[in-house]
Amino acid sequence: MEKRKEKRNRLIKLRVSEAELKEIHQHLGRSTNRSLSEYLRRLALNKPVTVMVRNASADDFLEQMLPLQACLEQTCNTYTRAVDRLPVLNKIPELKGWLILHESTRAALLEQVSRIESLTLQLYEQWLRK
């Protein structure tokens, strides 16, 4: 059975200040309603209004992860360049330099992965507490 759409032919006027209108639009923006009329109708008829809520712990997690991602990408690029240079090293001093660079890059890469693991575990523990 198809539900017939009820014709809405009555108009209600509502006077609000600029500040009130701005606040209403802010609330509308956080809801899932597509139009101001639909939003106000639901409020007036005491029907549920679905509001989107941001997860603060996930936002904090992303705020910390994005710089780590950039640092990890840079470290991976440095490591890749170092490995690419390995076949062209013919002399012992060049090889020693490569090994030193390789070890510092590897340590930086492992540090970044460890920080990512730590932040992921923190988010997981916060999620478990809820």
Rank of each mutant, 00 (worst) to 15 (best):
L110I: 01
E2Y: 06
T75G: 06
A107H: 12
R4A: 03
Q122E: 14
L101Y: 08
N9F: 12
T50K: 02
C71Y: 06
L43N: 01
I100G: 07
L99E: 09
E111F: 11
S57I: 01
Q122G: 03
K3F: 07
S17T: 15
H102S: 11
S31A: 11
C71F: 10
R85E: 12
L36G: 02
E103Y: 13
L109Q: 10
I24H: 08
T32A: 07
Q122I: 04
V88C: 00
R129E: 15
Y39K: 06
T105F: 10
V51S: 00
A19I: 14
L89F: 06
Q112S: 08
T105L: 10
L66E: 11
R115H: 11
S37V: 02
R4K: 13
V113A: 10
Q69V: 06
R81Q: 12
L101N: 14
R106K: 10
A56Q: 11
Q126F: 04
H102E: 13
L89H: 02
V83S: 02
C76M: 15
N33R: 03
V49D: 02
W98R: 05
D60F: 03
A19M: 10
A58S: 09
L28W: 05
H25T: 07
T32M: 02
P87Q: 09
K130E: 05
A58M: 01
D60A: 12
D84T: 07
Q64G: 12
L119T: 00
S118T: 12
E103Q: 14
S31Y: 12
L14E: 00
L14W: 07
N55T: 07
S35M: 13
A82V: 11
R10H: 13
H27Q: 14
D60T: 04
K22V: 11
L72F: 08
S37A: 10
L89E: 05
R42G: 01
I12F: 13
I92A: 09
M52Y: 00
F61E: 02
N90Q: 06
L110V: 01
W98E: 04
G29T: 12
E63I: 03
R30S: 09
V53T: 06
A19N: 13
V53A: 06
V88M: 07
S118L: 14
K96E: 09
N55I: 09
I12L: 14
L101W: 02
A108M: 11
F61Q: 01
A19T: 10
R129M: 05
R41K: 05
L68R: 04
R42P: 03
I116H: 05
R41W: 06
R106F: 12
Q112M: 06
R54T: 04
R8F: 05
E111Q: 07
E6K: 11
Q64R: 14
L123D: 04
L89P: 01
L68S: 00
S104I: 05
V113F: 11
S17Y: 08
H27T: 03
R129G: 04
Q64D: 10
S37P: 00
G97M: 08
A108W: 00
I12D: 04
Y124A: 14
R4F: 10
S17M: 04
L45Q: 13
N77G: 07
S31G: 08
R10T: 08
L86E: 10
L66D: 09
Q74E: 14
R10I: 12
I100E: 14
T80D: 07
E117M: 10
L36Q: 13
L121K: 12
